[in-house]
Design a protein around this nucleic acid. Structure first.
Lengths: 337, 337
DNA sequence: TCGGTTTACTTAAGCGGTACAGTGATACGG
DNA sequence: CCGTATCACTGTACCGCTTAAGTAAACCGA
């Protein structure tokens, strides 16, 4: 019973109103036409069941209305949440997101970035796994790029929302240090294993400053996969008294490992996460984590992206400061351990 | 310095090879041309830096290469995982997904579905919140629709991957019944509150059959929001001895509530989930849940969708059978409680 | 009153492919 | 040896919309 109206084209609306197709196009966009004409066109369009054809529009105008979103690894729950948020925010601004996932592989990320450009997205939002890759600069020539997390040196046609990772690392390590921990395992996502990844550098620098021994161990992001790594790390002797995970998803794996080994958190081992996924507050015990204001990141990156698409020349750089949420997964080191 | 090659069009490649544009188009697609021509064209295209223009192709051919994916609520982690999986699977088949989120609102879902059609996606994969809506049939006339979860009665131009929810409900309730539970709270997503939602019907039918008292309570999907609902339900007197959650995400909220109330799981209250998100196996205690073979769902829905786009007329209906994973969050009812 | 700007359009040329109706040449069956 | 397929293309009209350039009328200040 829903009325089945067939699609009309602009030309048909033009015929019906006695205007030229161009006039209709203008009227529908509310430019270069009188109020009354716009109203008349709108009515006719409604009547004929006209609906805009985004593809034709894209071809003629050179903008597709799509923004590519290239995630480092969608195995990670926090990145999932970020992607969902950005997708929504873009949609709210009349844009669609194409979400792709590099699965932690920098090469793959570059490949996908190129593919997205060939797909004629209007812009690219990316969490660069390898910020130093030359391709970013090249791509930046032909479309606006907004990076999340790290800065893209050497390019220019983009904005960036960078994380003050150093501050996050410092906060977490100082917190653990203050609780008496002097031997800390650090689980970093395998995706972050690009040489000289800033995060790793910060960990080493801070550890040295604080006089803490750190075991930096790469771990997959996939839920559960981190469990095996954690089992290994927690089985070592001497056992680290705390584990600092570079993503909450990894932390969840550590929780599973402690259960399996019969270790109490934070009694036997303290656990701290990074990113503060909503899940982390619900766990037993709630996970201490470095929080990044995901809403702000979503909002900033989309705003900068849309500004860039709309031709604002000014490059924007936004720095996110973390805040450590001290919850119940971290505690004083056990005496005698 | 990466070589900056400018984009060439088909017409330019045609000029360079001395062929007509049409021939080039054919050659690039490997049809209606000789092997040698194809090779020659490919080489010239490579040389000139030709790259396909999907938008132009879409306009001319009438297929956009995009599939709309309309999720019931991306607040739910399992649905997030499903969306990620479908996005990947489509990409692997040279299609892009546009992921949209109805946020649990059936009206919104219909609006988005219409919008996606107007965006000229080649097909629509949807988790219908209101399967009985007339719009599905209407949309089904103009593009292939694959539904996940529930069947779309009254339409025809689509396939479906339906869940045997009844079996899932039965398995979970029988499990709890066998453990002695006779008073069970059932938390269903608010998104499922369409009248006569099959799941609710099943719950009531099964409860009656088994002689179990059920309190069916709607709950939001958002992590944490379910905690408040759970606090309320578990604070009632008499307290249900078990909680059956219609999604694992809700279950996570229940866990948080039990911690807050100092209730032991499963000692004081048993908890069962639905969908089996990877996270559930990692919790303490691991969450008993109804598992749906997410890989299979991803694979089936994408396969059916692509079949439909490629014009296979045969409507496909695939039924998913659940399996109950009995983990450690459910146990015998405490004597005397 | 007049040149100049503004407004509200029209005209027409694409955007970059695809698809369909040819076309000439070669292959083939009887 | 001829009629007819088949093959490998060509020519061109679109797909539906946008945009630059052009135009006629209305407006406007001096």
């Amino acid at each position: 019973m829903t009325q089945q109206r067939k699609r009309a084209t602009i030309r048909e609306v033009a015929k019906a109103t006695g205007l030229s197709p161009a006039a209709v196009s203008y009227a529908l966009r509310g430019i270069q036409t009188s109020e009354e004409t716009q109203e008349r066109v709108r009515r006719a369009a409604e009547e004929l069941g006209y609906e805009a054809h985004p593809i034709a529009r894209a071809l003629a105008s050179g903008r597709s209305g799509m923004v590519g979103l290239l995630c480092g690894s969608l195995e990670d729950l926090w990145q999932q949440a970020l992607a969902v948020g950005i997708g929504r925010a873009l949609f709210a601004r009349d844009r669609y997101a194409i979400i792709l996932d590099a699965a932690g592989d920098p090469e793959r990320e570059l490949m996908l970035a190129r593919q997205l450009r060939d797909q004629r997205v209007d812009g690219l939002i990316v969490q660069p796994l390898d910020p130093s890759a030359a391709l970013w600069a090249e791509l930046g020539e032909s479309l606006p790029i907004v990076s999340i997390g790290d800065s893209l040196p050497g390019a220019h046609a983009y904005g960036e929302v960078v994380f003050d990772n150093r501050a996050g690392v410092t906060a977490a390590l100082e917190h653990l240090h203050a609780l008496g921990h002097r031997h800390i395992a650090v689980l970093t996502p395998t995706m972050a294993r690009t040489p000289d990844r800033p995060a790793d550098v910060h960990v080493n620098a801070e550890a040295e400053r604080l006089g803490v021994k750190v075991d930096v161990v790469p771990s997959p992001q996939a839920l559960g996969a981190a469990t095996d790594v954690a089992l290994d790390v927690l089985g070592r002797s001497p056992r680290p008294t705390a584990v600092f995970c570079f993503s909450d998803s990894i932390g969840y794996g550590v929780y599973a490992a402690t259960r399996e080994l019969g270790l109490a958190v934070p009694g036997d081992v303290s656990v701290a996460g990074f990113d503060n996924h909503p899940m982390s507050a619900l766990l037993t015990p709630p996970l201490t984590s470095v929080d990044w204001d995901i809403e702000g990141i979503v909002h900033s990156s989309v705003r900068v992206m849309i500004g860039a698409i709309d031709g604002k020349p000014r490059r924007r750089r936004i720095v996110c400061e973390p805040s450590l949420l001290e919850r119940e997964s971290t505690g004083p080191v056990r005496v005698g351990s």
